[in-house]
Design a protein around this nucleic acid. Structure first.
Lengths: 167, 167
DNA sequence: TCAAATCCCATGCGATCCCATAAAGGCCCG
DNA sequence: CGGGCCTTTATGGGATCGCATGGGATTTGA
């Protein structure tokens, strides 16, 4: 498996530590985090949600690639640099597979007692569990609509509905 | 890690000293600063912001490269030379990883009680914390716009929305 | 000789490492 | 097919380490 999949909820302990789900760790290990202990978890506030985005080397490379394409002293590059590099935190993963979330990141996502890790393929997000539930419910209803549109056009519809459970 | 990443805020003490974030020091050490403690921190007023730019050997080389690209006796080159080299200071880093900012530099960035160190990949900036927060907010909102334009113009849409956040 | 800059040491807080426990899941063997 | 053992994983706590910061001591330069 080489993508972040499904959702896990873990607790934040008194020291602010959270265990990264084992399956996510496995993905990180084979994506750049492998080959060297030096790597870390790249983490930053989601631009359009009260959540955090995170990923491994692959994600970092992507950011680099974006910037590499822009001229050195352009305004555009400056803006992007600040928004990307400035907001990014490189979190180290301890021997037990845990990270500590800096205050600034916790604040953005309103994290206090627990964190929901949500796999999104090449990266994953970290949500405050309640907020994520709301968001998920919302996403589901939207999917429903989309699916019905699809069904109307090409499918016989009429299945139980459990099919689309996982978004 | 060989790039300046993320943001740290440290205090200026009564003697005008500031600690350089440990992770930035690590980057400096392997970039030209390595090979000898003799090296220093290249630091100059940002051309387009009330902040300071700083970096190690790699940054110095880059500036050289920039200038090399311009015709020898052009006005452009003269202006850039003055703008860049003219105000460059080579700051020494003491045994505890601290620097002292000359008055001229402090004035340009309005630094007094604390400094925010902002990683920008190959270099970093030093900001008065409040000013940086404003700048960051601005950069973020601009990125929002850029991203939405991207999404609207070239992407099939229909994804959750946050997936492509940083692309 | 005095002021200012540099070096060296002390300290407190936060981060990191290491170990212990417990719950869960998987596997093998009966 | 079922039960028990063993491995993996999450979580908690204690101890240790490193870093940021502050204060003195010492040197440098005017």
């Amino acid at each position: 498996m080489d993508r972040f999949v499904s959702t896990f909820t873990n607790k934040i302990d008194a020291k602010g530590r959270v265990s990264i789900p084992a399956s996510f760790r496995a993905v990180l290990e084979r994506d750049g985090y492998a080959g060297g202990i030096a790597g870390g978890l790249y983490c930053y506030p989601s631009l359009d949600a009260q959540a955090l985005d995170a990923g491994g080397e692959r994600l970092a490379k992507k950011i680099d690639g974006l910037l590499a394409g822009l001229p050195d002293y352009s305004d555009e590059r400056d803006e992007l640099s600040v928004a990307l590099y400035g907001d990014v935190q490189v979190l180290s993963i301890d021997g037990d597979g845990r990270i500590v979330l800096p205050e600034s990141l916790r604040a953005h996502a309103h994290l206090d007692a627990a964190v929901s890790f949500v796999g999104l393929g090449e990266k994953f997000q970290m949500w405050e569990p309640k907020r994520f539930e709301e968001r998920r419910a919302e996403a589901r209803s939207k999917i429903q609509v989309t699916r019905k549109l699809f069904a109307a056009g090409s499918r016989p519809s009429g299945d139980g509905g459990d099919e689309g459970a996982r978004e």
